[in-house]
Amino acid sequence: MKSVAVFLVSSFMLPAFAGPVQDANKKLVTDFYNMAFNDHKPTEAAKKYFGPKYIQHNPNVPNGAAAFYNYFEGHFKKNPQSKAIIYRTLADGDLVALHLNSKLNDKDPGRAIVDIFRVENGKIVEHWDVVQPVPEKTANGNTMFDGQNEK
C-alpha cells in the first residue's frame, strides 16, 4: 500500500517540476538570455522573445521592449566584455527563474542574480530580479553558485 501512495503523490506532483511546457519555457528564457546578455543583442532578443506587452519590475528599467533594449544597448557599449554565466534554470508553470553570475569583465567578481520571467503564449511578458554583489570572502566558505560538492 505504501508504494501505491508514493506513486500517487509522485504522479500528482510531477507536473509542477517537469514537463513539456516547463521545458519549452526554460529553453525560451535561456535562449533569450544568451542572445541578449552573452551575444549582446538585446534588441534582436527582445523583438524575438518578448510579447506585445512587457512588464518590468526592475526599478532601473522602464516597461516595454524598447525601454529594455535601449537600456542594455547602452550598457553593452560601456561594457563590451560583460557576460552572464547561468548556473541554474528552474521552471514552475509559466514562471522561469535563472540563477546566474553577471560580470562586467573577467576581473569582475560580478553580481549574483536571480531573474524570474513570466511566459505567456510562448513569449516573455514579465520580469523580476534580485541582485546581490559577489563578495570576496564568505563567512561559510561557500561560493554563491556552486552546489552540494562545494567543500
Rank of each mutant, 00 (worst) to 15 (best):
E44G: 02
E44L: 01
A46N: 04
A46D: 07
K48A: 15
G51T: 13
P52V: 00
Y54Q: 03
I55F: 01
I55G: 00
Q56R: 06
H57A: 02
H57I: 02
N58F: 00
P59R: 07
P59Q: 05
P59N: 05
P59V: 10
N60G: 10
P62C: 02
P62F: 04
G64P: 12
A65Y: 03
A65F: 03
A66K: 15
F68V: 00
N70S: 11
Y71T: 12
Y71K: 05
F72H: 11
E73F: 01
G74Q: 11
G74D: 13
G74F: 01
G74S: 13
F76P: 06
F76L: 11
F76E: 07
K77R: 14
K77W: 06
K78Y: 03
K78N: 14
K78D: 10
K78G: 10
P80E: 09
Q81S: 14
Q81A: 13
S82I: 01
S82C: 02
A84I: 14
A84R: 11
Y87H: 15
Y87I: 02
R88N: 11
R88W: 06
R88M: 07
R88D: 08
R88P: 00
R88A: 09
T89N: 12
T89R: 13
L90Q: 02
A91D: 07
A91R: 06
D92V: 05
D92I: 00
G93A: 08
D94G: 06
V96R: 11
V96A: 03
A97P: 07
L98Y: 03
L98G: 04
L100H: 07
L100C: 09
N101P: 06
N101E: 13
N101L: 11
K103W: 00
L104S: 03
N105I: 01
D106E: 13
K107T: 13
K107E: 09
D108F: 02
D108C: 01
P109D: 12
R111K: 15
R111S: 10
R111Q: 14
A112R: 11
I113V: 15
I116M: 15
V119P: 13
E120P: 00
E120W: 00
N121Q: 12
N121R: 11
G122Q: 08
K123Q: 09
I124T: 04
E126P: 08
E126L: 05
E126W: 05
H127V: 08
H127L: 08
W128M: 03
W128H: 10
D129Q: 06
V130C: 14
V130R: 04
P133F: 01
P133N: 14
K137A: 04
A139F: 14
G141P: 04
N142Q: 15
T143Q: 03
T143M: 04
M144I: 00
M144H: 02
G147I: 00
G147D: 04
G147L: 08
Q148A: 15
N149G: 14
K151Q: 10
